[in-house]
Computed example of a mutant assay.
Amino acid sequence: MKKLLTLLAILTLLMAGCTNDQKPTEPAATPAATPATTPATTPASGKLVKAGFIYVGPVGDAGWTWAHDQGRIAMEKAPYVEPSTFLESVPEGAEATRVINGLVKKGHNLIFTTSFGFMDATLDVAAKNKDVVFMHCSGYKTAENVGTYFGRMYEPRYLSGLIAGKMTRTNTIGYVAAFPIPEVIRGINAFTLGVRSVNPKATVKVVWTQTWFDPGVERDAADSLLDVGADVLAMHQDAPATLQAAEARGAYVIGYNSDNRKFAPNAFLTAPVWNWAAVYTKTAAEVHNGTWKSEKIWWGMKEDLVRLAPLSDKVPADVKALVAEKQKAIIAGTLIPFSGPLKDQTGKEVIAAGVHMDDGALLGMNWFVEGVQGTIPK
C-alpha cells in the first residue's frame, strides 16, 4: 500500500506539471513613457511599433542624416518601440521604391522617408500597403496613410543671419547651397533678411552644388566664395566641407543640421539645427495608441523641432543679446521673418508692408530677396 500511495503522488505531480506547461504565465506589462500630450498607456494596451528609416546620406555625415538618426535613437527609448531599422545612402528614385518595399515585406508598420526626392516612391508603396503608416520629410503630397513633416528652419536661419551680418567685415557673405528647391531658397532668403536687418550693405553670394552630400564639390564651392572675398560662410549641405574650408582660410562659418563646431573650432559661430525626436516620438506614440492620422506637420522653434546651436564665444555679448531677444520674439509670434515690405533681388516690392507671407507662398518660394547675389537654375 505504501508503494502504491507513493506512485499515485508522483503521477499527480507529473500531471500538474503538464498542465502548467500548456498555460504559460502572461508577462507583466511595463508602463510606457509617453509624451505629455499622449494619454498614459502600456505596451500591452496598444500596437508595438516596428519603425524603418530611409536615409539619403550616410549616418556619419555629421549633418542631415546624423540628425535624423539621433531622433530615431530617441524614439527607440519608448518601451512600445521595437528595435528599428535604418538604411543609409539610398538613391532618390527607383532604388528608393525597392528599399521601401523591402521594409514593408519585413514587417515594419511605420516607415519614415527622410528626403524630398523620396516623395513619389513613398506614395507609390503606400498606395499598395494601407495598413502601414508612412511619414515623408519635406514633401507636399499626402494620402490616407501618408503624412508629411518638416520644420520652419527659416526661423533659426534668420537668427543666424543676424550674427553673420554683425560679424562680416568685407560685407560679402557666401552661401553654399545644394539644390534650387523652395526649401533651400527659403533658407537663403531668411538668412539674408537676418543679415540685412542689421547690415544693409552686406550681400549674400550663392553657389549651387547640385548635391546634398559630396565633400569635394562642397569644398570647391566654399573655396570659390572665399576667393571672391567672403569672410563668413553659411551652408545648406550635409557634409562638413564648408566648415573645414572656413577653418583653413581664417573665415567665420555658420553650420547646419547639427552642432558641428568640432569641424571648425576657430571659425564656427553657430548653426541652425534639427531636433527630429520631437516628431519621431510623437508619431510612434500615435501609431502605438491607434490615434495616428495623416497630417502636414510644419513646426518651428516654438515646438522645438528647430533650434539655434549655442553661440560661439567669438560672438560679442551685444550680438548674443540681440539674438536672444529676436528668438523670444519669434517663439512668441511677434517676429515673423517673412513680413512686408519685402523686395526681390531686382528691387521690386513683392510683399506689401504689414503683410505676412502665408504657408503656401513659403512652401512654393522660387525667388530671391533683395541682397542675394546669384540666380536660381531651372
Rank of each mutant, 00 (worst) to 15 (best):
L225M: 09
R186H: 02
N101D: 14
A33E: 12
Q237F: 10
A32G: 13
E370N: 13
G174Y: 13
E218F: 05
A51T: 06
R219S: 15
V287N: 05
G17F: 14
G216N: 09
D131F: 04
A321G: 09
G151P: 02
P156M: 06
T346E: 12
A127V: 10
V350A: 06
T281K: 14
W298M: 12
D124M: 06
N171I: 09
T30I: 15
A127F: 11
P182L: 06
G17S: 14
L311C: 01
T38D: 00
M357L: 14
D359V: 10
D124L: 12
I336T: 13
V146Q: 03
V133W: 01
R152G: 03
K47C: 00
K23L: 12
T281A: 05
G174F: 14
E303N: 09
A332W: 09
K262N: 08
A221G: 08
C18R: 06
A202S: 08
A284F: 04
V146Y: 09
N109G: 04
V228D: 06
F338N: 03
E95L: 07
E144Y: 11
E303G: 12
L13E: 02
F112C: 04
Q373L: 13
L7C: 05
V228K: 05
W367Y: 02
A36R: 05
W274S: 00
Q345D: 15
V207T: 14
T142H: 03
G147P: 12
T85D: 05
G333N: 11
K166C: 10
W274V: 00
N145W: 11
A222R: 08
A36F: 06
T375N: 05
V315A: 09
D231N: 09
K296P: 01
